[in-house]
Structures are given as C-alpha cells and as structure tokens.
Design a protein around this nucleic acid. Structure first.
Lengths: 342, 342
DNA sequence: TCAGGAATTTTACGCGCGTAAAATATATGT
DNA sequence: ACATATATTTTACGCGCGTAAAATTCCTGA
C-alpha cells in the first residue's frame, strides 16, 4: 500500500488503469461509467485515498456545487436552527453549503454578497436583514445568481419567497388571548423587517375585526439585541404604564424574553392563574422560550417546512437551469404553543 | 464605460496596459508594484469591475487564504458569538473564514474534517465536541493542516490550545457562594468535554480545601440540549431531594437555565433575598443569562481574549510557515458576574 | 457471425491564474 | 554622464481538472 502519494487525477487514473477523463466522469456521477469501470475505480479508491481538487473542479465546471446560505443574525438560535436544517438538506442533495451571517449589520450583508459572487454558487438561500438591507444590491445579485429569499421578504427580489403567514398566526394568537382573558396590547420595536410590519398590521386588523381598540406599544431600537430592547424599554413601558391591558402580545419571542425579565424585575407575576399581574405572549417559538420563567406562550413557525421548501425551490431552479417563470411566495401557518405565560 | 466584459486577468491586464503577472502581483499585494503601476491598475479597476477568480487563485497558490472555523454547536449563542468574533479578526487580516458546526454530532465533526481538507485552508481554528470527538482523526488532520484548538482541549492535539481557566473560575464562584450563604452543591450532566470534567474536579478541590464535603449531583444526558436536560433532570432532582444545599452551582449556564425553569415550575423562588428557597449559579455568562428570571449569577469567560489569542496564534504559525516548537496552552481567567439568582 | 447504433472512453484543448527565471527599468553613487 | 546594484516587469511554464469531439468498445438483432 502506497497511500496519498497520488497527487492528481492523472496519477490516480493511471494506477487504476483508466483514462483521466473517465475518472473525471466517475467523480461527477459514478453511474455515468460502465459498471466494470466503476468497480476498478472504486477498488483503486480503497488503496489510494485520492480526492479531486475542489478548486480545479470549480474553476472548470460551468456551475459549482456550492450553495450560499445567508442569515441576518446567527447569534439568534432560531436562525442557527433553520441554517442547520438547510445545510443538512443541501449536503444530502450533494451540494456544499456555506453559511454566512450578516450579524445584524447592513454593510456586512453587502460584503457577503461580494464574497458570494466570488464563490460562484449554483444558488443562494437568503434571509435578509430587512429594512436596512441594500435592496438594490440584493436585487442586482439575484439577477446574476439564482436566489431564494426566506424568512424575511423583499418584494419582487429573488426567484421566490418562503416564510410564515403572519396574517394567520397573529390573529390566531389574538383570538386565543381574547378568548381566555383581556384583549392584548401589542409590544413591538421599530420594525426591522416586513415580518414586524405585517405582525403589526395583522394585530391591528384582528383587533378591529373584533370591534376592539388596538393598542400598540412601540419602543425605540434598531439593533438586533432584541432581548436588551425588550428588557430596557419594557421596564420603562411598565413604569410609564403604557400597557393598557394586562395582556401583552410581543412581536417576537426575543422581545418577549426581555419583557419577561423586565416583568420579573418589576415584581409582576406573569401567567394565567389568579395572582398573576400580566400575561405575556410571543411569536416564533424561539428555542429558549421553553425555558423562560414562566415558559412562554407563543406561536411556532413551521421552520422545517420553510427550510424544506426553500431548498427544494432553489434546487428545482438550479436543475432546470432557468429562472422562475413567476416569482412565487409561499407562507406556512403557525401553530399555537400554549405554555404558562399566557 | 464597458463594464464587466472583462473575463479574466489577461483581459484586465491589457486594458490597464500592464502585463498580467504584474497585475497578479498587485492583487496579492498592492504594495509590491511600483506606485505608478498601482495607480494605473486602480484606475482601470474603477472602470472595469474585475475580480480575480478565487478558484484559479487557490488552485495555483502554494497556500490558500482560507481559514476553517469549527464549533461544536452553533445553536448555542455562546459559540455563535465567539465565531463572529473570530470571523471578524480573520477578515481583518485578509483571510476568508468558513464556519462549520458539528451540531453536536461526532460523525458530522468527522465529515467536517474531510470538507476542510478539500478546502486546503491555511489553518483551522477548532473547538471540538469533546469526549465524543474522534481524537485520532483530529490528530491526523492537525498534522496535515495547522490547527489551533479553542474552548475545549484535546491533550497533545493541535499546535496550541486557548480556553478558560476552570481551576480559577470555579473556586472563585465557590468562594463567593460560600461567603454569601450556604456552600454549593454542584449540578452537572455526564461530562461531554474536558471543561465539564475540570469544573467538576475544581469544584471538589475547592470544597475540600475549605474542609467541606463536596456534593455533586450528576444527571444523565449525552445530547447538546443542555437546557432540556437541566430542566427535566433538575425537576427530578428537586423531587428526589438530591440537592443537599440551598445553593446550586451549575456546570454551565445552559444547564442553569434549564434548572431555573425547573425551579420555577416547582414553585421555588430563586435568589438571594429572604423568601428565596434556592440560589442558582452558572458558568460561562451565556448571552441569555442576563434575561433569565431571576437574572443568572455566573462567571464570564473572556471570549474576546480567547478569540484574539486563538487567531493570533494561528496567524503566527501560518506566517512562519513552521509548526509550533512546543504546544502551548493558554487559559484566561473568568470574571464573576453577580446577578439576582445567587 | 456480422452490421449498426448506442454507450463509453480517449484525444485534445483550454480554463484563469501563480511563480520562477530572465529581461528590463529605476535608483544610487561617483 | 556612467557603471553598478536593486526594484520591477515580462517570458514561459505548469497547476488539476472539465468537456467537446473523435475514436473505440459494447450490445443488440438478424
């Protein structure tokens, strides 16, 4: 056995007694060569652990097997989870995903687009920052490289959008809260992305449909430290008695987590039972929402479906080699997750 | 202006009136060409937005500018933060970091090593899973590619290790807890990595030095869903009265977060004041520990220093082109973070 | 057994760039 | 102004592989 002295496909081809181009075919698709040939190659592969040079491959292929995955904020476990889900599906399909996070910074998001270009990926799965995203840059990018948006929509950009149906999930939560207690006010920060906007509008609509007066408590904050904002601004809001209901529906779980901490610090007991001062509900079913005190009532996004459909949509595009005839938006319904906080 | 019709360095060189190899030199180091030449290239760069093909570059360079960054579990915001920190430093130094997560799975960690090999990175920053890591595979890998371990040590593997000094941080917390109340018992799960082991031993040592009887409550669990384990097993432990002290020092914050939820569900008030049934402390200063109810007393790892030293150590290795004359282990001290839970 | 077409393999070429060695231009000292 | 040393640029070659087109092999049916 003389391992790893194989330096390129040429050498590997000669030791396996096959011509190099045939070996090349094998690595691109093992089933594209005759069974007997395949057997010889695989036998050689056992002896000499050769692997094609990925840079030479990507230089010469019309299209790489790379997939770019971009999320706005990786320190948010929600995105870490969805990214993991997406990565797995890409790998299973024989692609190489590369994960990027904008870390909440628009300029970083722009830089990522440049990095992605040089990666020459077959396609990109992109969850934009939202309002602060450079729409023009992303649109231009998506014209060069097949791009599927998920989580946060940018109208008209990319081949498709896959996300959650806020106009279903929000009324559902409003309905639940109204049924079981006082009608909720809505706690939000300056909307960073379309989801935040839609949730706001969906809340107002849902309240009005019930003939109730919507009450939105909007606080300042344009960073991605949602918990910080929920805590600091929530505390202020409590002190200024801006919540005109004992039931607070938060625009997302991270904000709710901060608000829970604020309520705790103010000595407000949170939950449904007697003796509870407020009810707090969130949105997203953040991984940590099961471990807050009290555990957080929220609505779960169907991120398995979001990941699956995003990936499938992109793969279809890649396989067809064409662009989408029409931009399609797919939204999944949320599920009510009843816990102790509301 | 005729933009983007430039297809390669040859064409770009001709429109800028310079020979291609000189242009190549420029892209590798703008200062390596004469000022007048640089000016002409940069002028051309304004007109035609050309960028060298990264695959052709990496195929031909002796060494790529890639850095692999591997963490055990990206859904843990602690690792997301440290990864972000590391990435920034790599980019600032002109390298291209690529982030990988083992997602808690040893087989995935092994796969990542293979992916990394084909990336031919200049170096790798590696935070291993720990006990379940394939030591042999990582050791073999680190012989081929300069590898610096961080967070979790594997004795003798890699060029260096950078982490936290558990034998400083744990006694410090034990000391604080003893000073301010009952001596702590120690809540841990089956140790997944050396840190867990060291914290265990450091706790036992610290207690014995005080002439106190250590009391370790170890629960089952070999997944990375620490909060789940802390919650479920913590609840059981409360019910079985396994904690023989009103003060519980958790092996890490995620376990503590689960335990806080368990305490809440059992109706135990957590904190220092009168009327509190238990005190709970953690370790790591997890990003969420500021937002638990009550906020979590813990010890902060100096992850900025860990990231900085890890990156610097690796860069020195890469620049020197040699391997470390001796494997060095650097550990940083933790800082006590006093909050409401203990 | 042999023709004929399909499947497979080989020939031949090029991808976009790094880099050593050779050639040339620039800077320095007199 | 000239010779020498130094900094820069150019020449020339090769990296490891994909891929079209040509050549070959294979399989089928008569």
């Amino acid at each position: 056995m003389s391992p790893s002295r194989i330096r390129n496909m040429e050498e590997f081809a000669s030791v396996s007694g096959i011509s190099r181009p045939t070996v090349s075919k094998y690595f691109n698709d093992p089933d594209s060569v005759r069974a007997s040939t395949r057997a010889r190659i695989e036998a050689a592969l056992e002896q000499y652990d050769y692997r094609p040079n990925i840079y030479a491959i990507n230089q010469n292929r019309r299209l790489t097997k790379n997939i770019g995955v971009v999320v706005p904020y990786l320190a948010d476990p929600f995105f870490a989870e969805i990214a993991r889900n997406i990565e797995e599906r890409c790998i299973a399909a024989g692609f190489s995903p590369t994960l990027f996070s904008a870390h909440g910074q628009p300029d970083l998001e722009r830089d990522i687009l440049d990095t992605l270009r040089s990666l020459k990926p077959a396609g990109v799965l992109f969850a934009p920052l939202g309002r602060s995203s450079d729409r023009g840059a992303i649109e231009k990018f998506s014209r060069d490289i097949p791009t599927v948006l998920f989580d946060s929509n940018i109208e008209g950009v990319g081949e498709a959008f896959i996300g959650s149906n806020n106009f279903q999930s929000v009324p559902m939560m409003v309905d639940y809260l109204c049924r079981t207690g006082e009608a909720p006010c809505f706690f939000e920060m300056t909307p960073l992305n379309p989801n935040a906007n839609k949730r706001h509008n969906a809340y107002v609509e849902a309240m009005e449909q019930r003939g109730l007066e919507p009450n939105v408590v909007r606080v300042e904050g344009d960073s991605w430290n949602f918990e910080d904002i929920g805590f600091a601004e929530g505390k202020k809001a409590f002190e200024q008695k801006r919540f005109n209901s004992d039931t607070i529906f938060c625009s997302n779980d991270r904000l709710a987590i901060g608000l829970l901490a604020a309520a705790y610090e103010k000595g407000y007991r949170v939950g449904n039972g007697a003796g509870c001062a407020v009810r707090i509900a969130g949105h997203d079913d953040h991984p940590f929402s099961r471990f807050t005190s009290p555990t957080l009532t929220t609505v779960a996004q169907d991120y398995a479906s979001i990941a699956q459909t995003s990936v499938e949509t992109l793969f279809k595009l890649i396989e067809s080699g064409e662009r989408a005839e029409e931009r399609r938006e797919t939204v999944y319904e949320g599920k009510l997750v009843l816990r102790a906080s509301a």
